[in-house]
Amino acid sequence: MENKHIIFEHHSEEVAVLRINRPEYLNSFSHEMIIDWYNALLEFKEDNRLKVLILTGTGKAFSAGGDIKALSSGDGFIGEAKEDLWSNAVKRKASLWENIQKIPMLLEEIDKPVIACINGDAIGAGLDMALMCDMRFCASQARLGEGYIHLGLVPGDGGSYFLPKIVGVSKALELLWTGERINAQAAMDLGLVDYVYPAEELFEKTVEFANVLCEKPQNALKMIKRLVKNHDKISLRNHLDMVSSHMAVVTDTHEYIELLKQMKSSKKPE
């Protein structure tokens, strides 16, 4: 699927790439983009041939977040929404829920790995979209920051939910309160990104890691993601109950049975 603001393509039979494609506006979000972004995620979720999704941007930025021009004109930071959709508090709330907030809700349902390949600056909602991914590979020249405070706004897409889970409450408050932009190395030191590479190596390194994940037992990989993503939402008792259920299932899969056979056959007799 290819269109003006989102490019969704199969990099290989098992790895998909979702590319934010609005470089003239530093990949800031538009209404059209959000719709196509959601549809691309749905396609990835439902295509059993695809095992890993890489999210990246076109041009020099990953994403500058919300469309500031649209915001200042009263059209709302989700892009070219009609003015009447942003004209009062109730409609602004509904506009967020029915548009950009659909992205994190759908991502939460996807058990397959989603990796952010942060090719350039990731600001505000652009950073938040990277935080929603399972891992983050970042270009060494990229800057990252939460810019909402400079406009007197709160994170509209879930950034205040994801950021403290990654860097802790106090550091999340500092980044959100100050709107400070930090470099890639500082972001890695905080745990905000997982790997930093020169820009010319970044995408290749991200694909290499995606290919490693493609080689793993997929049922176990998906269930591990479910367990980790839910670790702080349920009690230990419920978590262990969930673990035992998942263990019972994965040990009955073809993947497990084949790997067990391989392990037994590789053992040398004493």
Rank of each mutant, 00 (worst) to 15 (best):
L175V: 03
L175E: 01
L175D: 01
L176M: 12
L176E: 07
L176Q: 11
L176T: 13
W177M: 12
T178C: 05
T178M: 05
G179M: 04
G179H: 07
G179R: 10
G179V: 05
G179T: 03
E180L: 07
E180R: 14
R181H: 13
R181W: 10
R181D: 02
R181N: 07
R181V: 03
I182A: 01
N183A: 04
N183Y: 14
N183F: 13
A184P: 06
A184D: 00
A184K: 11
A184G: 03
Q185C: 08
Q185L: 13
Q185S: 13
Q185V: 14
A186F: 11
A186N: 14
A186D: 13
A186S: 12
A186K: 15
A187N: 03
A187R: 05
A187C: 01
A187T: 01
M188Y: 07
M188E: 11
D189H: 13
D189T: 11
L190D: 02
L190G: 02
L190R: 07
G191N: 03
G191R: 09
G191I: 05
G191L: 04
G191P: 01
L192Y: 08
L192C: 02
L192H: 07
V193K: 08
V193D: 00
D194C: 05
D194K: 12
D194P: 02
Y195H: 13
Y195L: 08
V196A: 06
V196M: 06
V196S: 06
V196R: 09
V196E: 04
Y197A: 03
P198L: 06
A199F: 12
E200P: 01
E200C: 06
E200A: 09
E201Q: 15
E201C: 12
L202K: 11
L202T: 07
L202Y: 12
F203Q: 02
F203K: 09
F203M: 14
E204D: 11
E204L: 12
E204T: 15
E204Q: 15
E204M: 12
E204V: 15
K205Q: 15
K205P: 05
